[in-house]
């Protein structure tokens, strides 16, 4: 018995000793007001909560183990045994019959080609499980279709899109409104642009932008404008019906600018197997003129 008592006190002590520790810990990261800090605080609090809960469970188990002989005696009294609270007590002291039912193993007088049948009770866990799922099903249908409290898929989608709109900074999404970027020239930016081009654009425009399914991007001829902001627009919104995919949502604004700039850097590179020119000729000077 004594080791149980030790466990009992030990757990209590541990619980007490964590209290000040958690106060210190919690106090520290309050100062920075950034979202990150409050997120960290949340995790710390959750962690503390988990530890406290764990301690409670340990305590409870210890307490039960400690009190089990007494509880068992209480449970065995007929008045307690047959009441609802008695059944809870029975579960606590580990009366297996409450879970698996009375197993009488009495044979019925059935004989099917030598197969016999018992008529044991339905296991209570199964019976109550069935009842629980039935209640769940009724509540589920009531929640969504009688009370109409729950969001069905259309409403759920609308909510998801609203939340996304709050989180994602909205940039101008009007295709008619031209952006006013300047082509990037830093080697690091162009090399990022090259990487993006290889994975996303090369299948249609060729590895050297010589043109395959899509047009050649290295000549002076442009279908939808050869100025960096025109290219930016073409990439972002695509060209409906002509096969140019809209990349907004797949590439970020920065990435689109990097690719656009990389494409412009290929002007006049004259790759092998170049596709014949398509669209209107635009003087290279024009690229610089429009700013």
């Amino acid at each position: 018995m004594s080791h149980r008592r030790h466990l009992f006190y030990g757990a209590g002590l541990a619980l007490l000793s964590t209290a000040p520790a958690l106060a210190q810990e919690a106090a520290a990261p309050v100062a920075p007001t950034s979202a990150e800090a409050s997120l960290r605080l949340m995790w710390v609090m959750l962690g503390v909560l988990a530890v406290v809960l764990l301690l409670f469970i340990v305590l409870l188990v210890g307490l039960l183990a400690f009190l089990k002989p007494v509880l068992r005696k209480l449970y065995d009294q007929p008045a307690v045994h047959n009441s609802w609270s008695g059944r809870v007590l029975g579960l606590l002291v580990g009366d297996a019959r409450l879970m698996q039912g009375e197993v009488r193993d009495e044979l019925l007088d059935h004989d099917y080609d030598g197969i016999h049948e018992f008529d044991n009770d339905l296991p209570p866990w199964w019976k109550y499980g069935f009842a629980f799922t039935t209640v769940f099903a009724v509540c589920y249908l009531t929640y969504y279709h009688v009370l109409k409290t729950g969001q069905l898929q259309g409403a759920e989608y609308a909510t998801e899109m609203q939340q996304a709109a709050l989180l994602v900074a909205t940039t101008s999404d009007d295709p008619n409104q031209l952006t006013t970027y300047t082509a990037l020239t830093a080697p690091a930016e162009l090399s990022s642009g090259k990487g993006l081009f290889t994975t996303n654009c090369a299948p249609c425009h060729g590895a050297s932008a010589e043109g395959k399914v899509g047009p050649n991007l290295t000549d002076e001829y442009w279908l939808h404008g050869g100025e960096v902001n025109h290219i930016y627009r073409t990439i972002k919104f695509g060209v409906n019906g002509k096969g140019m995919v809209a990349w907004k949502g797949k590439l970020s604004g920065k990435q689109i600018l990097q690719v656009s700039s990389y494409i412009l850097s290929l002007q006049g590179s004259k790759p092998a197997n170049a596709k014949p020119p398509q669209g209107e000729k635009e003087a290279p000077a024009k690229t610089l003129a429009v700013r």
Partner: peptide
């Protein structure tokens, strides 16, 4: 989450959940 009307989807969910015990009846 398809174009099937919501009420039919919900019936599918509710009855699927209720199916656990009858199926497990066979297992046990």
């Amino acid at each position: 989450y398809t174009a099937l009307p919501d009420w039919a989807q919900s019936l599918g969910v509710a009855f699927s959940v209720m199916l656990i015990a009858p199926s497990w009846g066979g297992m046990i």
